[in-house]
Design a protein around this nucleic acid. Structure first.
Lengths: 208, 208
DNA sequence: AAAAAAGATTGAATGAGTTCAATTTTTAAG
DNA sequence: CTTAAAAATTGAACTCATTCAATCTTTTTT
């Protein structure tokens, strides 16, 4: 069922997304006009709006692709985490943070996050939120894995702990993208300090 | 040095803020046009922009006043918290949540949060962020107080624990305002579950 | 193959946020 | 009191994001 129409649709979609992503990178979000994006993608302004609900939406789409990569890159660590709770948590979180600024600027993160909060019903916001939920699950799954291994005490609510750790890192990431001057290193240090009490307390005594 | 100019400025500022807050409440953020706000405040559109950088800014200003009240209302609980860590934390957090929807709709929260993330440098975003920091400090201070009382074990990094608890509740609040259908009760339950492991683990054994 | 229906594209029109040069008001100086 | 300087106000003009009725393309039906 790959008719001409479907092929054209996929092609236009790709062109618009690429045009937007490149323009955002070149001139920033605010200076990239829909008209410019449409022109670069060789479609009309109206067509742009056939593919994306609004300007923020296409940025969220771009950022979502990045989050998917982050999620993917986290799998390896959850599969085979470091031995101690502290190291394992920190390894996963640092992985997230390191990945986050490879393709995206702080400005792009800010706008994507803001858009996903402001218009939570738009399709790409939903997608973004869903990916966020998957990241949260990944952290929880790490804690569960550590619990199965015996590194985390039995009886601990691993899901609750994972959610709290994730919400904390997520909020800290928001703080990070808000402050242009804050470095990745500082972010990691702060989160590491915040994680330490929880990580140590849930760990089985002999494993330290 | 209360010249005429200063008095007029304060008066216009108040009128604009009140006009905006009432209009937002009456017709919602999107439908409230700057022109309408200016008209109700009996100033020109240009003057509006002399007092607020943009439309989002004045919403953030409105919301900030609310956050100040929340902060104020939290003081009582920190001064004289419930005996156990779990109860004390939950009392403070529930207080925050209960206060949050008295004057503000979810929509207003969404837009205020989005604006403060998107334009972190604007004066009112800074103010909002600063208030957020004070809320975070308040949670940390509660944990410190519990530690002094002996309810929380010595040796625990109370500040780190407080920050994590705050970041968690803040992120959960974002989730709450994102989902129009989510009730305050559900929010409280989720956060209560997330807090339990941390609260129990940091508590001194005999105090349970 | 022609006609009808469905699906997409188009770009001019719309509308709201924002800007800024001209004007007015207030303060300070002479 | 007059005049100059500083500060604030004003609203028409401008910029974009967004919409939508008309048009064109693709698919389906006969």
């Amino acid at each position: 069922m790959t008719g001409l129409r479907a092929k054209q649709k996929a092609d236009r979609n790709r062109r618009i997304l690429e045009a937007a992503a490149s323009l955002f990178r070149e001139v920033g979000y605010d200076s990239a006009r829909i008209e410019d994006i449409a022109e670069r993608a060789e479609v009309s302004v109206g067509t742009f709006y056939n593919y994306y609900e609004n300007k923020g939406d296409i940025l969220v789409a771009t950022v979502s692709m990045e989050v998917e990569e982050v999620l993917e890159s986290g799998k390896a660590i959850v599969e085979n985490p470091p031995a101690t709770t502290l190291d394992a948590l920190q390894a996963l979180i640092d992985q997230y943070f390191d990945h986050s600024l490879v393709y995206l600027s702080k400005e792009m993160w800010r706008i994507a996050m803001a858009t996903s909060i402001q218009q939570p019903e738009s399709p790409f916001s939903r997608r973004y939120t869903e990916l966020d939920g998957r990241l949260c699950d990944q952290v929880s799954m790490l804690v569960q894995k550590l619990q199965l291994r015996g590194a985390v005490m039995p009886g601990i609510d691993a899901v609750a702990v994972g959610q709290m750790a994730f919400n904390n890192l997520n909020m800290m990431f928001i703080e990070f993208v808000r402050e242009e001057a804050m470095t990745l290193e500082t972010l990691k240090e702060h989160v590491a300090r915040q994680n330490r009490p929880l990580a140590l307390l849930i760990s089985s005594p002999r494993i330290q």
